[in-house]
Design a protein around this nucleic acid. Structure first.
Lengths: 246, 246
DNA sequence: GGGGAGAGATGCCGC
DNA sequence: GCGGCATTTCTCCCC
């Protein structure tokens, strides 16, 4: 168990040196900002980054239970035997207070990282794939150039079918839902309005679609095409020794 | 600097004891699953939780740069002087490999936390507020009972106006956008279809609305009411000593 | 800086 | 489990 005065001092020094701070503590947390929250006593992991963002993690779960964004101002002090960490983001009018009762461990270190993640297989890649291989959508489908695409907003792929009818394609990398259908509908209506056309087709391209969405899609005269989103990076070996798994 | 063999051993023991593990390391990360990603060498914070979820954080930013969800199987070993952490989620067909070149610090501890966060000021609270004070929407607006509300799906508030016309209210706790309008439209059309009514009103209740959304809303004959989402928890003091801020 | 839309979205609740 | 939807969504892009 760490002395709170010591942790308070180490915390200030670490932040001053722009180190990342990690500590585990029994604490109580209050938040007020866009919403309000209260979290009673329990053990959590507290992370304070060099950009002054703060994360609080419970021992389970993916998402932080509380957090403050970059640019927050932090202050700490010991009062009534508790270590207080007060966090203020005046720009966003958000406030968070952590009241620590016990500190289990503390660590800080300067981390240097200039790398950015390279991520592929997203919706943009899917739209590019359709540009390069339009027959995926249907026979005779011809996309217009990518430059023209942006002229009507955020439409993924705009093209013409074999009968030269203007066709809007909306891509989803996941299972298409009702919101995807209404989005497609909005784009088709926007194009009809902008171009003064009465007949514009709408196609939803996704790996799959929910039954309700399919029904709504067909009620509106649009159609669905099953397309698997691409993955470009070389797959690294998925076969490995199963020894020592835990 | 920690010895990789020692970290590997500590890691296995900590996970076996269901402790949370936190370590800072210079590493390289590969991911393959719903998408594919690569992150070159840099210093990151790696967190392995008792539910076997994994988080990788860069020294800046709110969101983890890589992660694996609860239920992942982890295995670690030292090879060619590097500490490998391989993470597999067979159910979700996701795979992540961390190749650690240096380990700056390591910590683990059993954390006990049975508390759940109490969060207020969300959309549901906003709908409840309107139920209790329907005059917020407009004079003569009467919500139907909360039981009936669920009968037609996920409509926030269903009621009648002073002329007894059925009215759908969609709440947004943030600035209403185009998607909010299409969502309202979908609900109104669903109600008209289900009840065989030709005249159903739609009201969007939110703190504010974008110009484009307002235009689309009015084009469809719906209306906007400015409503501030409620905050119930007692505000704790926002005035505090500015000493020792950092 | 606001608007619009994707995200390896996540998480919650409903059926 | 899937479906529908909010999220202290967050992040990026583009105007």
């Amino acid at each position: 168990m760490w002395k709170k005065e010591e942790v308070c001092s180490l915390l200030k020094d670490a932040v001053a040196r722009r180190e990342i701070v990690v500590l585990a503590a029994k604490c109580e947390i209050k938040y007020s900002g866009r919403a309000e929250s209260y979290l009673g006593d329990g053990d959590r992991l507290i992370i304070l980054k060099e950009d002054y963002s703060l994360l609080v993690h419970q021992p389970q779960g993916n998402a932080p239970v509380n957090y403050m964004k970059s640019g927050t101002i932090h202050s700490s002090f010991v009062e009534d035997g508790f270590l207080f960490l007060k966090c203020e983001n005046l720009v966003q009018k958000e406030f968070l207070t952590i009241i620590m009762k016990k500190v289990y461990f503390f660590n800080s270190h300067k981390l240097n990282d200039s790398q950015k993640i390279v991520l592929q297989g997203n919706e943009a890649d899917m739209a590019n794939m359709i540009y390069k291989a339009p027959e995926i959508i249907e026979d005779g489908f011809k996309p217009v150039s990518q430059e023209e695409q942006t002229a009507y907003g955020f439409i993924d792929v705009l093209g013409t079918d074999k009968e030269d009818i203007l066709t809007v394609v909306e891509c989803k990398r996941y299972c298409a839902d009702l919101a995807a259908v209404t989005q497609l509908r909005r784009y088709v209506e926007r194009i009809m309005d902008a171009k003064g056309l009465k007949n514009v087709r709408g196609i939803l391209a996704a790996p799959r679609i929910t039954d309700n969405a399919k029904k709504m899609l067909e009620d509106w005269g649009y159609s669905f095409v099953s397309v698997i989103p691409p993955k470009y990076l070389a797959e690294y070996s998925k076969s490995q020794s199963k020894l020592d798994e835990y």
